[in-house]
Amino acid sequence: MVEKVWGRDDLPAPFVAPQGQRIGEIWFEPPPELPQVLIKYLFTSEKLSVQVHPSDANALPGEAGKEECWLVIDAAPDARLAIGFRHAVEREDIAAAARDGSIEQLLQWYPARPGDLFYLPAGTVHAIGEGLALVEVQQASDTTFRLYDYGRPRELHLDRALAVARGEPYAAAHRRSIADGPVLVDGPFFRFDRIEGAPEPATFAAFTGPLLALPLAGKLSAGDVRAGPGECLYAPACDVVDFSHAEVTLLVRAAI
């Protein structure tokens, strides 16, 4: 559990925040067999900073590229996510808006509803709004450059953020929904599926190597290891996981 200024002290079940702590993130540390991907829960009571991540190609020494996606699992009626800009903007316009706080108005804010999936390529300027519970799947990187933080006393990283930010609208092709089928992301860094009950043969075929399984409802096991809601199961392959008590499960593996 990671405390955040924008976190919550009333986490949804099955999580319980320690007394006096505002928990914003719950991380499942990548196992040695699958170090490339990181899964988190995010819980927000306030807006997160406006930020951006580098790609592997434009990361400097000591940094690491980061592409990510968000699956909305709960949302207040007016919850929103800022992703990309309303129209193409130049770097100097982004810099000026970050300094005076008007960058919020430059960003495109999308309504967020349970079951929505947003994939964010590296370089996408973004901010998560309040009243959300998300599952985030990402490259295992903590390199984040803040452009704006609502006056909070945290470091900003304008030079590096401007160097990697894309001043463009968010592509509609990166949005999906659980209604579109089990494959949420099949990208350059990870595969991410949502399944109900037992996987179909195509899912078993796609997850023949190391994977992480996150039960949202129901239970899973692999040998003597069991996992329920709020936990994450590592398995060497999908066919060793017992889905007989599974209801809704998220599966993640590194790209092949």
Rank of each mutant, 00 (worst) to 15 (best):
L211F: 04
E196W: 08
A217M: 13
R166E: 12
Y148M: 05
V135W: 02
D193C: 15
A95C: 09
G101L: 08
A97C: 08
A171S: 15
L220N: 02
G129F: 02
A97E: 02
P121G: 07
L220F: 08
L216C: 12
L212E: 01
T144H: 01
L162N: 05
P188Y: 08
A112Y: 01
Q139P: 11
Q105E: 14
G218E: 11
D224G: 13
P111T: 09
H174M: 15
A98C: 07
S177A: 15
A122N: 03
P111W: 07
A161N: 07
E200H: 10
T144E: 00
A98H: 02
P121L: 07
P121N: 08
L132T: 04
H157W: 00
P210A: 13
V164K: 02
L117S: 06
P210R: 08
R113F: 11
P199N: 10
I195V: 15
E130G: 06
A127T: 06
G187N: 12
I195L: 14
A95W: 03
E168N: 11
R113M: 09
G223M: 09
T144P: 01
G209F: 05
R113T: 12
A112W: 00
D149Y: 07
P199F: 06
R146Q: 04
E130Y: 04
R113N: 11
F204H: 10
D100Q: 01
L212P: 00
G167I: 08
A95Q: 11
H174V: 08
E155F: 07
P114T: 03
Y110A: 07
R191C: 10
Y170P: 03
I128G: 00
V125S: 04
L184P: 12
A205K: 09
L134H: 00
L147C: 06
S177L: 11
D142S: 11
R152T: 06
T144C: 02
L117Y: 14
H174F: 15
Q139L: 09
L156D: 03
D116E: 09
L158I: 07
A122T: 03
V135E: 00
L162P: 05
A173D: 15
D159F: 01
K219A: 14
V164N: 05
Y119F: 15
A95M: 06
G129W: 02
G167Y: 06
T143H: 03
D142W: 03
G223T: 10
G101W: 08
A179F: 11
G197Y: 12
L132G: 01
P215A: 04
A112C: 06
T203C: 11
E200A: 14
L132M: 08
G181V: 14
R166M: 13
S177R: 14
E168K: 12
G167K: 09
T144R: 01
A171Q: 14
R194A: 14
Y119L: 13
A213N: 09
P121C: 05
I94Q: 00
A127D: 07
R194W: 14
V185D: 14
Y148T: 02
R160G: 08
S221D: 11
A127V: 06
A172L: 15
G115F: 09
E104F: 01
T208L: 13
G181Q: 14
F190C: 10
D186C: 13
A222H: 06
K219N: 13
A205E: 15
I195F: 12
L220D: 04
I94C: 00
I103Y: 03
H174L: 15
V183D: 12
A165R: 06
D186R: 15
F118K: 01
F190T: 09
I178V: 15
R166V: 10
L117M: 14
V185Q: 10
L132S: 01
